[in-house]
Nucleic acid binder design. Structure first.
Length: 492
RNA sequence: GCGGGAUUGGUCUAGUGGUUAGGAUGUUGGCUUCCCAAGCCAAUGGCGCGGGUUCGAAUCCCGCAUCCCGCACCA
């Protein structure tokens, strides 16, 4: 299905909707999760914990969203996270100053160029607005971080633009108290904030959004020394780089040099296995190796995990080899020692190492959007819209319905609902015809519907209807909970 | 941010200066109904915000906001 169909469903069923929508001054780029959206998000995160955090023995933390100025001085965000911009005095168009100058004089402009130098170049070459030939303003800076003031004196601080900085800041303590050895991954789910110039397309570009980030701390001299690699050596990966598309096993990707080392291949494989369990169509997904001019300022090797949708390829996960950029920056700025003991490969003895970082930075909203779009199916044959979510991701797992509301069938159905509701997200519904109730459940992705009929009152069995096939089996009420729990279990 | 289009109950929509703002669908209650959006009755709920023109504005004008499309941006 397409973007509009997903948006319609999200709004009409309450997966998500615009924030502050009853007020005229509501700002773009802020959306709320409704009940079904929260449930889907929580289940998605639980799958993430299972497939990544627990599987790999990662540590999970939950850091604060407001962080001090020093953090972002050290991380480079206060310098590099802001872009030099110029504005046309006539038509008010805004341009990236470095790119505009680069194009106009047909030469590379160094990344760290000073604003004054850009001003000078614009003057020297007589660069004007490409659209209307209007005069350009002086270079200014637009920082995408939200600044906040703390306390009565208004100390400067920022909403974090990525969740990972708390992981770096906390690294030394965590490594000690959790008795870590390299490589160790630290994970976090939480909100990040970016003051986007033009938020668009609901969940796809937001100013406030959830990330699930994983920072793998490793010894840069031991990137192929990964015992766990055997677990994933046969995972099939689709990788796009400057040589084209490769569909290869993880082990081959390393041996052929498509992926530079086993550590990166291992984590890309875990990610691949995770996403293949979300219901995203993996035949429309790829890891794309970024060219040098596309990478973030801190990355030396970078892959984007991308998924094809009706609005184009979406970047769901940024996988960046950040080298020691972060720990070095924080170590220098804070004077906290971030080095740890690890095997020094020259003679097998221990030595001090400043770990490098490989990062998996997942956008949760974009992931949920792709799951919804790839799961939503227009079943014309049966005149229904079906959200074919994996049962373990469904916000409501079973509907409990009396076939008609009389002769005690509604009473019996309520009993069953009450029996199930603590273990399973169940929903009782007795309004209207049975077909209408099935359709409603189909549209929000409920995988099973239990129906109480006359036979139930006689022999204590109910029917269990399967969402995708619409087929029904009879199950004894005594076996119902177990039967459903088995069907709703997370995949092994 | 620039340019274009749009904004009427939860959703879709009729309405181009004077309408009790109509319909469909949904939702809720009732009747009916034993397996896939049936039927009947009733109820519910709306002109994005602000200003202007006018005797009178959902309707015309201006500003703002949001949404959609294109461009730019996307660390």
């Amino acid at each position: 299905m397409n973007y509009d169909a997903v948006t319609d469903l999200a709004l009409s069923r309450g997966f998500y909707f615009p924030s502050c929508e009853i007020y005229a001054d509501a700002q773009a780029g802020f959306w709320e999760y409704g009940p079904l959206g929260v449930a889907l998000k929580n289940r998605y995160i639980e799958l993430w914990r299972r497939e990544l955090v627990r599987r790999d023995g990662m540590l999970e933390i939950d850091g604060s969203q407001i962080m001090s100025k020093s953090v972002f001085m050290a991380s480079g965000h206060l310098n590099s996270f802001n872009d030099p911009i110029v504005r046309c005095s006539k038509c008010s168009s805004v341009y990236r100053a470095d790119r505009l100058v680069g194009e106009a004089i047909n030469a590379m402009v160094p990344e760290r160029i000073a604003d004054e130098e850009l001003d000078a170049l614009i003057l020297k070459h007589g660069i004007r607005c490409p659209k209307c030939k209007g005069e350009l303003s002086k270079v200014s800076r637009f920082n995408m971080m939200f600044r906040v003031s703390i306390g009565a004196d208004g100390s400067e601080a920022y909403l974090r633009p990525e969740t990972c900085q708390s992981i770096f800041v906390d690294f030394a303590r965590l490594f000690k108290i959790m008795r870590c050895k390299l490589p160790i991954a630290i994970a976090q789910v939480g909100k990040s904030f970016r003051n986007e110039i033009a938020p668009r397309q609901s969940l796809i570009r937001l100013r406030e959004f959830y990330q699930a980030e994983i920072e793998v701390f490793c010894n840069p001299r031991r990137l192929d020394d990964i015992d766990k690699f055997d677990e994933v050596k046969d995972v099939m990966l689709r990788i796009q780089d400057s040589d084209g598309i490769h569909e290869v096993k993880a082990s081959e990707a390393v041996s052929k040099g498509i992926i530079p080392n086993r550590l990166i291949a291992y984590y890309l494989s875990l990610l691949n296995e995770f996403y293949s369990k979300t219901g995203i169509d993996m035949s429309r997904a790829r890891f794309r190796r970024l060219a040098d001019d596309e990478k973030a300022f801190y990355a030396t090797v970078a892959y984007d995990f991308e998924v094809e949708t009706s609005v184009g390829w979406l970047e769901l996960v940024a996988c960046n080899y950040r080298s020691d950029h972060d720990l070095k920056g924080h170590m220098q700025a804070s004077k906290e020692n971030m080095e740890v003991m690890d095997i020094d490969d020259s003679d097998g003895s221990s030595g001090k190492v400043l770990p490098h970082v490989f990062e998996l930075s997942m956008g949760i909203e974009r992931s949920l959007y792709c799951i919804l779009e790839h799961s939503l199916y227009d079943d014309r044959e049966n005149d229904r819209l079906v959200l074919r979510l994996k049962p373990y991701l469904a916000p409501i797992q079973v509907g409990v319905l009396p076939i008609v509301k009389k002769d005690g069938m509604d009473v019996k159905a309520k009993e069953i609902f009450n029996m199930l509701k603590k273990d399973i997200d169940a929903f009782y519904d007795d309004s209207g015809s049975i077909g209408r109730r099935y359709r409603r459940l189909d549209e929000i992705g409920t995988p099973y519907a239990i129906t109480v009929d006359r036979q139930t009152l006689v022999d204590g069995t109910v029917t269990v209807r399967e969402r995708d096939t619409m087929e029904q089996i009879r199950v004894r009420i005594d076996d119902l909970r177990e039967e459903l729990m088995a069907r709703l279990r997370l995949p092994s």
